[in-house]
Amino acid sequence: MVRVKIWGSLRTATGGAEEVEVEARTIRDMLNALAEAHPGLAPQIDRGVSVSVDGAIYRDSWLTPVEGAKEVVLLPRLAGG
């Protein structure tokens, strides 16, 4: 089980929960499981997200393990200048 922190405006899709738990080994599993358990998250996940795993931020990195991570945070897709 991974506990995933959800940012504020997505919490309408999780019934207000700030954190949800899903069964997942990797970021990809996790995103799929999130979209399945909380269909309201699916459009945002499709548009693109980043995921922070124990402080390191990943973009499009499906295979990164999340199992056993202390902190997993869903973030908007990061970009820069």
């Binding site: 940012w7 405006s9 997505l10 919490r11 459009p43 945002q44 908007p76």
Partner: peptide, 21 residues
């Protein structure tokens, strides 16, 4: 406008984000 914006918000408002704890 996408699903993050509450229904009834004027159409030029296209996304809403909220962060914090």
């Amino acid at each position: 406008q996408d699903e993050s914006v509450p229904a009834g918000t004027p159409k030029n408002v296209v996304r809403r984000y909220e962060f914090g704890h």
